[in-house]
């Protein structure tokens, strides 16, 4: 009797699917995003709300999304990576250097992804094995990686001539920019891994209750190392796309990138404390951040004011997010 009831229940609620991440709480930020779109659409007299501008924004946010997928894994385990901006610069410079020696474009990208993945794994190992706070470890890494990129190039960009490589950043797949296609696939795969695989489940477990994860027999260190390694790899990919886009490996790119990625992930509902989050939230968060920049540019607001506006809107978005969250779950649970 009871069993039948269970089965009936589990059938009516099909929360298990890939879209299981979407919850009421994401709706708050989605709502903010829609308001923002309407706001810019009205103020810009039609220059904002066009397909071509949508594609432009998509291209801009695609890098945030690609690295944000890795960052989401890291933050779900209860850690953070402040070095992703510097990874972007470092991998761009290195890929340009490799291409200079005539290495084919695909090999260059793979080599950089593996290399950056190893760097990520190293950071993850330090965090996990030496039990150091990831905030501090990655802050140190930020210094090391951006310093290395600057030292290697003497602060000047390395130009890239490989046309195939350049088209990763600039080309189109039909009407859609290639980086957007890549970001789309990474996002889907990220969500799949998060919801459907052991690694994803364990990542939530590690961030949700570290002690219980250890006693449950989860190899906690390995999960943390993987999360950082994935982020390193995806940073390598992003750095390559960025380098293609700029026709060069530039050691000074990615200055605001940390802010964008972390903002996108957090606005998307991933908890800084770990254990909670998903990729759909990231998608919305990344667009929110991207559209603020894009809309204000179209309206002719100077860059410096844009940064201020970004900060404020991030604050408001997080407030809305918290409001919806509290409506959903009893907060005063003892």
């Amino acid at each position: 009797m009871a069993l039948k009831e269970n089965l009936a229940n589990s059938k009516t609620k099909k929360k298990f699917g890939l879209f299981s991440g979407i919850r009421i709480r994401d709706m708050g930020v989605l709502f903010a995003l829609i308001i923002l779109i309407i706001f810019f659409a009205i103020l810009s007299h039609g220059r904002f709300f066009t397909i071509s501008n949508f594609l432009t924004v998509s291209r801009q946010v695609s890098l945030t999304i690609i690295v944000g997928v890795g960052m989401t894994f890291i933050m779900i385990t209860g850690n953070i990576d402040l070095a992703v901006g510097s990874y972007l610069a470092l991998s761009g410079v290195l890929v340009a250097a490799i291409l200079y020696y005539g290495v084919p474009w695909y090999l260059a990208v793979i080599i950089i992804m593996i290399f950056m993945g190893l760097i990520g794994a190293l950071v993850g190992t330090v965090v996990a094995k030496q039990k150091l706070n990831s905030l501090i470890v990655t802050l140190a890494m930020l210094g090391i990686a951006s310093g290395a990129a600057l030292a290697y190039t003497g602060g000047k960009p390395i130009f890239i001539k490989n046309q195939a490589f350049i088209s990763i950043g600039n080309g189109y797949f039909g009407p859609i920019p290639i980086p957007v296609v890549i970001a789309f696939f990474i996002l889907i795969i990220g969500q799949f891994v998060l919801r459907k695989t052991k690694f994803g489940r364990y990542a939530y477990a590690v961030g949700g209750n570290m002690e219980a994860a250890i006693t449950s027999g989860i190899n906690v260190d390995r999960i943390i190392i993987y999360a950082f390694a994935i982020t390193g790899m995806l940073s390598g990919l992003s750095g390559s796309i960025m380098a293609g886009r700029l026709f060069s490996g530039n050691p000074t790119v990615g200055q605001d990138f940390n802010l964008d990625v972390i903002a996108a992930v957090v606005i998307g509902g991933t908890s800084l404390a770990g254990g909670v989050g998903n990729m759909w939230g990231l998608l919305i968060g990344a667009f929110l951040v991207g559209i603020i920049g894009n809309g204000l540019t179209i309206l002719g607001v100077p860059y410096f004011y844009q940064i201020i506006a970004k900060g404020l809107i991030i604050y408001i978005a997080i407030l809305i997010d918290r409001q919806t969250r509290q409506a959903g779950l009893g907060k005063s649970r003892i």
């Binding site: 695989t197 052991k198 489940r201 939530y204 961030g207 949700g208 209750n209 006693t215 449950s216």
Partner: peptide, 24 residues
Amino acid sequence: KNESLFMNFNVRENITISFLDKIS
């Protein structure tokens, strides 16, 4: 509360957390 359950998980995810090897 501290050593066993994951409060961010539902019933299903909690019950199977140490059993995933067998069902994956």
